[in-house]
């Protein structure tokens, strides 16, 4: 914890994304973007998430293109373990043929897990490095340099994932049941009488929307809360060390669990969408 901060400033600083926007004067950052509204970019979230995604794809692609059907190497064995784990879950949950579901589940699981694991990086490390680079590289006030390194604590990311899942839910619903079937599902359930169409429609729409919304908010909420606790622990002085350790050990469980839940629910939702009731 840098000494010149007050506690609330410190927490606020650590929970603010580095944002970028275009103004009349060209590209601007952070505080200059306060009025930019929708058209600003969280460059830290984008950089970390895309970087981690590329890392995942790079490793898996390299293993995939060198994959041997004989005795696998250690890396291939590990990758196959992950792939097999995801595939088992997909096969046991999604009854149907789809070339998309399994790779989707794998991408979600590994990518979200990698982003979650950023939570275990000491809370001050990346913001401090970013601050030093900002201060000495660009002559900025380190207080104005933000770096939120856990992409899953950014609602934009979790909503982007959920939006992707939502698009696929709609896509699979229409593909499997047709537009008519999908419309009927939205309007003739749970009460099978034309009088209830408006009520049914409201209920079913809420059900439909609740799925991606809960996906996004669950992941965001869990990770945001755990990151917040890490930051809070970081404000209490030397006692933070055992506490940090305990909280980090706990998150060895929580972080993969959240990634797993996101993957599992995605499979379940898509399975529901592609089944006739």
């Amino acid at each position: 914890m840098a000494s010149e901060y007050t506690t609330s400033e410190y927490i606020k600083h650590h929970l603010t994304n580095a944002s970028m926007c275009t103004t009349e004067n060209g590209i601007a950052f952070n505080k200059a973007c306060a009025d930019a509204g929708f058209w600003q970019w969280h460059v830290d979230t984008l950089a970390w998430s895309i970087g981690l995604g590329l890392l995942f794809l790079f490793i898996f692609k390299r293993v995939a293109s060198k994959a041997t059907t004989g005795v696998p190497g250690k890396m291939q064995a590990f990758v196959e373990l992950v792939v097999d784990f995801v595939n088992d879950n997909v096969v046991s949950t999604f009854h149907g043929k789809s070339a998309l579901i399994a790779p989707l589940a794998l991408t979600i699981f590994v990518w979200v897990l990698l982003m979650n694991l950023m939570d275990l990086v000491p809370v001050d490390l990346l913001p401090s490095i970013a601050g030093l680079i900002g201060q000495y590289g660009f002559g900025m006030d380190p207080h104005d340099v933000y770096m939120k390194a856990v992409p899953t604590t950014d609602l934009n990311l979790t909503f982007a994932l959920a939006l992707g899942v939502f698009v696929l839910i709609i896509f699979y619903s229409i593909k499997m049941k047709g537009i008519g079937g999908f419309t009927k599902e939205l309007t003739m359930q749970p009460f099978g009488h034309p009088i209830f169409i408006p009520v049914n429609f409201i209920l079913e729409t809420v059900t439909l929307l609740a799925r991606p919304l809960s996906l996004a908010l669950r992941l965001f909420g869990n990770l945001y809360a755990s990151e917040l606790i890490f930051i809070l622990i970081a404000t209490i002085g030397y006692f933070q060390l055992p506490l940090h350790f305990a909280w980090a050990v706990f998150h060895i469980l929580v972080l993969p669990l959240q990634a797993f839940i996101f993957m599992m629910l995605t499979i379940v939702y898509l399975s529901l969408a592609s089944e006739d009731h």
Binding site: F38, A160, L163
Partner: peptide, 13 residues
């Protein structure tokens, strides 16, 4: 706040 990052992340995803 929700902003253009959402679009970028969606495309990346």
């Amino acid at each position: 706040n929700i902003n253009a990052t959402l679009i970028g992340q969606f495309i990346a995803f």
